[in-house]
Each structure stands twice: as C-alpha cells, then as structure tokens.
C-alpha cells in the first residue's frame, strides 16, 4: 500500500515550521511533517510539545514565525481561505452550539464548509455512520454527552468531504468503546483516501492506526517512525525515551492536584 501512495501529492505539509511567541517561548522549532493521501500521521507528545500549535498554524489561528504550512499545496497562512477549503477539523472537545439541535449544527457547519447541496437524508446518513441514534438528531446539543458531541464533530468533518483532516486529541476523554468506534471511523476515512494529521496522547491507539508516528518534544520532532518501523517495537518505551520532559510535568501536575485536594 505504501508503495502506491508514495507518489501521491502531499496534502498536509509542514516545512521548517517554527513558532516563537512574543514572550520568547519556543513552541515549534523547524518542524517538517508531510501527510499524503490515504495516510494517518499521529503526533505524539506531552502538553506544550507543539502538537496543537502545529494544528493551529495549519488553521491560521496563529502565524508561524518561519516556515510554511501547506494544505493541498496552498500556504495556509498566506491564502487561508483557499487553503481551508481542503481541510476539515475535529477539535479535542467538540462543543458546538448548545441551543441548536444536532441537525441545525450540522447544517450550519457543513454549509460554512461550502457544501450547500446536502439534503436531510445526507445528514442522517452521516450521523448514522458515526454511530448516533436517530432519536438524537433533533435534540439540542446541550443535552448531549461528550461522546455524542464528538460524533457530531466527526460527522461534520465527513460531510465537508475535504481531502485533508486535522484532529486535535480526538479521543481524549472518551470511554474505551467510543474511542474504539472513533478509531474505526478514522481508519475508514483514511481508506477513502483522506490525509489525516492527528495529535494524541494515546500511544496505543496511535500505533494501531497510524501510518506514521511523530514524537514531539519542546517543539521539535525528535523521532518519526513508519508503521513498518514500529512493528515489534514497544512504543511505550520509545515514548518514554523521548519524553523525559513530559514525565516531569506529570509529576508537577500530580503535586498540584494534591494541593488542591488538601485545600478543599
């Protein structure tokens, strides 16, 4: 399979991408990532490693200090409106408009994505495909669980039918069953030929579906492995190896949590 896709044009491409914030914090340092048609690229890394920054640059929410982010060959920061035609996005915690029903939310966001010829039936199919019960279609989003909202989010991405998809920690906070379903959907989308760039903490799931795994630490890509290279490798060991900084952070969080508890 890799042999056939290697010639495919890169749909998401980060070239020497760097971001330094005004306060001097280096969020990204010369990141190079390429995602082609029919590939899943998983970015692994702790908080502050630069995963979300990368996605934010692709979506033009922030400007890179140097380097380029290309979507379908279009520079996302120079021609953002053109570039965003070719990308869909599912955020870490999809919330949508709480006063709108699932249908209304779908309708708004899909139209916003430039698809205006869908019928109700298409929306229903998409929602069924992501595993939502039909009685939820016309419920307001404020009555939805996190998993249901996440499903709506992926339905929006499916309906937009863009060649590239950005996923920001899509499975965090989902129960194992929902997480599994979600993973299955992503794999399906890949098989349909989408180029998917996702950030995640979930090393096991990443290993399961990703064609490439990139490990980021302090804004740098410290390792990039193909699926073939990962075969037989204990990903956890690999992760820990590159993630000294992350573990420190966990320790810190733990202690502040303890503080909270004692205060309360």
């Amino acid at each position: 399979m890799q042999n056939t896709t290697i010639k495919a044009a890169p749909l998401l491409e980060a070239i020497n991408l760097s971001k330094v914030y005004e306060d001097g914090v280096k969020a990204l340092n010369a990141l190079n990532v390429t995602v082609r048609e029919g590939e899943i690229y998983a970015m692994l890394g702790g908080n502050g490693a630069g995963k979300t920054t990368t996605i934010n640059i692709f979506l033009d929410f922030i400007q890179p200090t140097s380097g380029q982010a290309l979507i379908h060959g279009v520079n996302a920061n120079e021609l953002p409106l053109e570039a965003k035609k070719h990308v869909a996005f599912v955020s870490e915690n999809v919330q949508l408009y709480p006063n709108f029903t699932a249908m209304q939310n779908l309708d708004f966001f899909v139209r916003l994505g430039g698809k205006s010829n869908y019928k109700r039936g298409d929306y229903e199919n998409a929602l069924i495909r992501v595993g939502l019960q039909s009685d939820a279609f016309d419920k307001k989003l404020k009555d939805f669980s996190k998993g249901m909202r996440q499903k709506c989010g992926i339905a929006i991405a499916i309906l937009k039918d863009a060649p590239a998809i950005l996923l920001d920690e899509p499975t965090s906070g989902l129960d194992p069953k929902a997480g599994k379903e979600f993973t299955r959907l992503i794999a399906e989308l890949r098989d349909e030929g989408k180029a998917i760039l996702m950030s995640t903490h979930d090393i096991f799931r990443a290993k399961e579906i990703a064609d490439f795994v990139g490990i980021l630490n302090n804004g740098e890509l410290v390792a990039e492995k193909t699926r073939a290279e990962l075969e037989g490798v204990n990903l956890e060991d690999l992760y820990v190896e590159y993630m000294a900084g992350y573990m420190d952070e966990v320790a810190e969080n733990g202690s502040s949590l303890a503080n909270n508890l004692s205060e309360a």
């Binding site: 953002p80 965003k84 955020s91 966001f109 430039g114 989010g153 929006i156």
Partner: peptide, 10 residues
C-alpha cells in the same frame, strides 16, 4: 470551541 470549528472553514 465553535469559533475554532467555524474558522477551520474558509
């Protein structure tokens, strides 16, 4: 988060 989602579109 809807602001992000909106601006993921052109």
């Amino acid at each position: 988060g809807t602001l992000k989602l909106c601006f993921a579109n052109p």
